[in-house]
Nucleic acid binder design. Sequence first.
DNA 1: CATAAATACTACCTCCTTGTAGTATTTATA
DNA 2: TATAAATACTACAAGGAGGTAGTATTTATG
Lengths: 136, 136
Amino acid sequence: MKLSKTSEHAIRVLVFMAQTPEEQYSVNTLHETLNIPFKYLGRLMPSLAAAGFVVATHGKNGGYKLLLNYEFVTIASIIDVIDAMDSYSQCILGFENCGDGKSCPLHGYWGPHRDAIKKLWETVTLKDLAKRGFKI
Amino acid sequence: MKLSKTSEHAIRVLVFMAQTPEEQYSVNTLHETLNIPFKYLGRLMPSLAAAGFVVATHGKNGGYKLLLNYEFVTIASIIDVIDAMDSYSQCILGFENCGDGKSCPLHGYWGPHRDAIKKLWETVTLKDLAKRGFKI
DNA sequence: CATAAATACTACCTCCTTGTAGTATTTATA
DNA sequence: TATAAATACTACAAGGAGGTAGTATTTATG
């Protein structure tokens, strides 16, 4: 019922950056602001860059900046890079062949929730989240 | 978005047993029927017994049998023994103080789903599942 | 051109989950 | 009473996730 710690971190970083999309942030700034381990971030950020969410500028005064398409980046696409969205299509009891023909005992109860959450993650974008005015 | 493997196993065992609540099953039978590793089951079952879901008969011709109150055993109570239900009350981004006053960016989207699933697990019983006529 | 400040890379450590193995204990029954 | 068939207990192994550490590389700038 949880995202992996790494997905949590990725989402927190990207939502934070989406609040000031023009801004460039160093790993150290993100680390201090978001309270995410520095070295861990230093490994996460290159993978977010490789996935096309952010772009890195090397050398002094470098850092990370959101790519322009951030408005269309969904939570699902972030989860997909770190955890994979697979579990949002799979049986909660781990049966391979659980579907609408053959189904596990929980399928009828669980399926609708699972599908709703999948759709939610595929719909909500960084822009939606950034403009939401949350406080933490 | 998944239960732990151990919770999966526990639920599968208990739902299976709830379909024939009078019957006593040996670990070996459960292992062969449900395709769960024998030795792993041999460690899981004592904990299900300790939790009061089943009762063990020792010695030859022994095995496990559901307790009479199985009709009122919820999925939540099973998850609680293995994984703990904590995550169904916690912030999906891992913030300690995410609630209705202070909330994380995902809270408004995620909260309702999380609460609905929590209520579902707290409501559905082994009896509901056993009489459902699923096939796997 | 030297230096400082940034990202990139790679190896390692620790903990938890899953699963395996072996042995001890209990009890029905021939 | 010996044996077989069952549960109970304990230690260990493999793998992944989270986190740490050190070093290499890149680049702006005085």
